[in-house]
Design a protein around this nucleic acid. Sequence first.
DNA 1: CGGGTTTGACCAGCGC
DNA 2: GCGCTGGTCAAACCCG
Length: 231
Amino acid sequence: MDDLHGDDEAHTFPRFPYFSAPSASPPLASPLASSSNDQHHSPLAAALQQLTPPPWPCSPPDLTPQPMLPAMVELDWSSMFQMGPVAPPEQKEEQAAQADRTQGGENDGEAGGSGSGGKDREKAEGSAGRSGKKKVSKPRFAFQTRSENDILDDGYRWRKYGQKAVKNSSNPRSYYRCTHPTCNVKKQVQRLAKDTAIVVTTYEGVHNHPCEKLMEALGPILKQLQFLSQF
DNA sequence: CGGGTTTGACCAGCGC
DNA sequence: GCGCTGGTCAAACCCG
C-alpha cells in the first residue's frame, strides 16, 4: 500500500467529495456559513445540520488558514481522494451514496489512490479483529496538505497508538484513534517521501459524535437558541 | 495522577 | 511453510 499515501504521482485522485471544487467555489470560511442547500432556513440551522459529523475533519472549511489551524497549513486540493474500493459492491454503493449525501456529491469515480486499500483494510481489520469475524469496511478518505505540522487540528481529539516505518518511505507512518469513548474513527498520518513538506492524512470511519471544537463554538449559540425557543 | 506518546512485540494476510 | 509487511497492542515513559 505504498502508493496509498500518494508516493506515486501518476495517480490522479477524484475530488474529495465533502469539499466544493477548489476552482469553482472556494472553501467555506466557516461551518456556520450556509450551503447551497435550500432546506437550511438559517445559518444556525445549517450548523445544526452539520452536527451529524462527516468522517473526515469536522470542519474542513477551516483547513484554510484559520485561527484554529497552524498558519502554515495549505491544502493541496487536487490531491484529495476517497480511498477505495474497500468494500463489496453493495457496500461500495452505500459508500457512494453516503459520499453524495455529504455535500456536492461530486465524486465521480473510484479513487485510484490506493489499489491496495481494500486489501490493507482487510489486513488491518483482521489484525484488529483477533476476536474473530470479519469486520465491515469503513469509508476511507485521504488528502494531502502542505504543512510543517504533521497533525492537522481538525477539531477532534486524537490519540496516537502506533508508529511504523513504511517500506519505500523514509518517513514513518503514525496511527491515531479518536479519543471519544464511543467513536472508533482512525487516521493515519505520513509525510511523502518525495516531498516531506506534504502530509498525507487518511481518515477511516465516521465520527459518531459532534466535533468538539464545533460544539465549543456553538455552545453559547445553542444555549441562546434553547432560551429563545421557550417563548 | 490522568492522559497522551513512544516503541518493541505480536498478529494476520499475502506472495513466493 | 516462510518471510515480508502493515496494523495493533500494551507496557513504559513523559508531561502538565
